[in-house]
Amino acid sequence: MHELSVIAGLMETVEALAKEHRAKEVTVIRIRVGALSGVVAELLDSAFDMVKKGTIAERAALEIEKVPFKIRCKSCGAESERDDFQFACAGCASTELELVQGTELILERIEMDSGEPEE
């Protein structure tokens, strides 16, 4: 259960970006969580609820995009999504693979409000 550390790190980044852009409030934080990132999306939600209190993102929505684990075969070129994390091509069973996605833990974007009227 290191989701709390992950969210604490995320909030440091978000607060720094908000300050840099002179935001009054952060309204949306969108992240991508790979199936093999080592963290659980539901626990990130709970951790975010705890950590956001009293911060610039207190009322922000945490949007989590779950990214499946996907590999590309170097032999036959097929791409396969493997929810069993088997590192073998679903087509030809080759283990010469490259990882396409699934290990990422990425802050994709944030939405902020400057508190000033729209132009």
């Binding site: 833990l105 802050l107 974007r109």
Partner: peptide
């Protein structure tokens, strides 16, 4: 005024 900021940054980037 609302603003969208695309960050695309590894959340564990500081550690890495």
């Amino acid at each position: 005024m609302k603003k969208q900021l695309y960050v695309l940054q590894d959340i564990l980037g500081t550690n890495q």
